[in-house]
Design a protein around this nucleic acid. Structure first.
Lengths: 129, 129
DNA sequence: CAGTATCCTGGACGATACTG
DNA sequence: CAGTATCGTCCAGGATACTG
């Protein structure tokens, strides 16, 4: 393997690492998970999402939808009626993501009481933090 | 069920929701996953972690370790030799979290090429974004 | 209805210097 | 060695107003 190939490999791995974290960071961000969860039940319109998700700002609804769309997890379906209307739905890829996400959510729910307890315990043992 | 109980339940759920997201947000933050991954192989000392994780600042190493410790996912083991020394290791709870996290990481790795492709495609179709 | 544009704030994170 | 303390920056996200 020559220098160039080694260099190339480095760069590919660096990029993968970035994308890897950029995808995972969507999972961790404030709204993606909520949207994914909502859309896993049924396709919904922009305004429906805005109504059912308390406290989300229009800006973040748009931004988050666009990110999810860009990653191919959600699609914007245009219905060509008159007047036209729009729906958001999970893609096939989005649907496969729901599986590990659900597993993580289940883990969190299963352990939430324990974590609350651990937190309280830690805070008690470490007052000045 | 009387008013008070309904109110209590509301509040519990609200708290759960907060904790739920605060735990998930650890998963999404910049360093927790890396630390969890590192420690899933073997217990390590502070300086070892700092050396093996490129680019992490001492501050974020400390902050992230403390958060993980607070949630009961990582423990700081004090070895009472002279001089004493310290190790960080996953707790039992931390080890159980590795399972769904690994599943999510696997999903990301499995689909990373597709996502890169989708991203490029989206960017091409939507120039002004 | 389904968004976009603009402005603003708080907090995550990094750099750096210091300490028992 | 294993951190803590302080300061500064940047950007995610909210509030609000506007548009085809």
């Amino acid at each position: 393997m020559n220098q160039d190939m080694a260099g190339l490999k480095e760069r590919i791995h660096a990029t993968d690492r970035e994308v890897f974290f950029s995808v995972l960071s969507h999972i961790g961000d404030k709204w993606s998970l909520v949207l994914l969860g909502m859309l896993s039940k049924e396709p919904m319109r922009y305004t429906q999402l805005a109504e059912r998700i308390p406290k989300i700002s229009r800006r973040m609804l748009t931004v988050t939808l666009r990110q999810l769309e860009r990653d191919g997890l959600v699609e914007r379906i245009v219905h060509a009626d008159t007047p036209p209307w729009f729906e958001y739905d999970l893609t096939e890829l989005g649907r496969t993501l729901i599986v590990p996400v659900r597993a993580l959510a289940d883990w969190t729910l299963d352990n939430i009481d324990l974590i609350i307890e651990k937190r309280a315990q830690y805070d008690q043992e470490n007052p000045g933090s």
